[in-house]
Design a protein around this nucleic acid. Sequence first.
DNA 1: TACAAGACTGGAAGCGCTTCCAGCCTTTAT
DNA 2: ATAAAGGCTGGAAGCGCTTCCAGTCTTGTA
Lengths: 337, 337
Amino acid sequence: MTAETPRRQPTLDEVAERAGVSRSAASRVINKAPHVSRATREAVEKAIQDMGYRPNRAARALATQQTGIVALAVSHDDPELFADPFFAQVIAGVSTALEDTDFHLLLCLASSDRGRSRLTNLLHARGVDGVMLMALREDDPLTDIVSKAGLPAVHGGRPFGFEPSWYVDSDNVGGARLATEHLVGIGRTRIVTITGQLRTRVGEDRYRGYREAMVMSGLTPHGMAEADFTEAGGAAAMRTLLDRHPALDAVFAASDNMAAGALRVLNELGRSVPADVAVVGFDDLGIAELTEPPLTTVHQSIQALGTEMTRTLLGLIAGQERTSIILPTHLVRRGSA
Amino acid sequence: MTAETPRRQPTLDEVAERAGVSRSAASRVINKAPHVSRATREAVEKAIQDMGYRPNRAARALATQQTGIVALAVSHDDPELFADPFFAQVIAGVSTALEDTDFHLLLCLASSDRGRSRLTNLLHARGVDGVMLMALREDDPLTDIVSKAGLPAVHGGRPFGFEPSWYVDSDNVGGARLATEHLVGIGRTRIVTITGQLRTRVGEDRYRGYREAMVMSGLTPHGMAEADFTEAGGAAAMRTLLDRHPALDAVFAASDNMAAGALRVLNELGRSVPADVAVVGFDDLGIAELTEPPLTTVHQSIQALGTEMTRTLLGLIAGQERTSIILPTHLVRRGSA
DNA sequence: TACAAGACTGGAAGCGCTTCCAGCCTTTAT
DNA sequence: ATAAAGGCTGGAAGCGCTTCCAGTCTTGTA
């Protein structure tokens, strides 16, 4: 590494002096405030150029009471769970939305108690201007921590049993309805569903969408089994469903992972998909294209979730009025239905 | 959301007043500085408790010239590439190491010009105390940006053709040697290799490990094809290798993705693995367990890479002496060799 | 009993920036 | 020509914290 200037960064005072104006004048040109003559502006701009000046963030934060940083707080039990492409997508979405602003992203993995206390501290110490949080579990402590902090906050997804002031969520009910209607549309009538945890909002919503669609199509829900959004859970649920409803001809699985598990079991048991039983999943996060057969599924855009959360948060920070957002979903037809 | 105190956070002055001491005294107890009487300390601690005081981060940063934030700068062309479990692992490792410190993690995706200029600004504006960077491409601009900033920095992996002052890297040469030796050990002699880009350090190193092991075993490198670490690239390379060296009996692929591609081609062409040709990969990042047959591969711990980068960086920030680190790798035997 | 050596303490000076304000200088309208 | 209405300007007061320093109050020792 070449020996780079370890010298102090220039300060606003030095810039002002070099430009031959007062510090306030220099500050005004930097902040594009009014009441600056052309001559002053140009002199200051030149000095800034020459000296390579950048306003010190800490000083500015102290003076303006704004840090220019937003936090993304993620609650996850299992450290592995973070490897889920889901989070990568959220982060990608957030980053995209942040890219043409002056805000930066602080990533807070608040799983352990220690992590949560760090987050609490950060918020109360006004280390960030706002928070986006992914609090997926029921009674997630994050929800409380964040609401107590008195900072702008937007939820990704909705917590179970409580409606945050601001959230961005996929249209889970609508998506599940779409999936079910598709199965009805291709002539299936003995449609069962594998749900996620019903004590999560997303699990509940997707189950509701299924029921609504069944009822509206004049069918009665044919059977359900609660699983946990995982491949293994989906496989187990599929087994019990086949056991209880041997005549089933379609299954709506509330996640692609569970659908993959279901497919595996169906394949093992010699039920051909989609001929004997049609399968529709939910998420469309990569795995759907790799199953055998490829999975017909409901697509939700997690990146969009990320960017919309960010936009909403930045709006709130700027003091604008904002409302929560439900993102549309749509069906992607592949081989399984 | 319940209406939470939108009231200002208490300041140190208020704490001091309530405790009946001076601001400096209060500051001392907070920072566990010496020369504080028991009575003073207890009074201040009580006031802090009562008022729920937290030192304001911006103010402290301004006074101490330390932000308590470290950046992880990632250079990626393709936004999708970020979905690579690789990054999730790095982040998980970094977070773990950060968990019992008072530092927070700022995530900087510096792909576009805009992203890079944001990073440059952040560094020069002293928005963070140090940087970890994953600059994987040759001549990655990140390397330059960061070195010019005059901030503690540690590289994850080594850039091509330049040895940073501080880095943490997997033992790619050693790992490749391990893989190749294993193939030799099971009696293979016509061993070919599929390399990553040879204009990246990791590509070069793994190729070198292969050659060294071959030579040391008294064999002559049997053939090589350069690919790009992807599944498709691996498949293409496998085809050309089979074409040029029909008698090959083993292949060392410098990544699991490429190995997966190679396996696919071998399966398609009816060469049985490992009977006809043995395959060893490198990385052990999940996919290795899912191939058919499961992949024998060289394991590297990306989480460890993350935690070691973090520890090194924090050490540098604290002014300690530090040296670069090469992390060990080991062979994981599965079905393919 | 006196005195040096420490242990505490609070005042004050920053850290680098924004922003209010009073004063000055131009304009423009009278 | 003159007064009112601005546009510009720099001084100064913060933002909330750390830290140096010169004092004050204890101690222990001679």
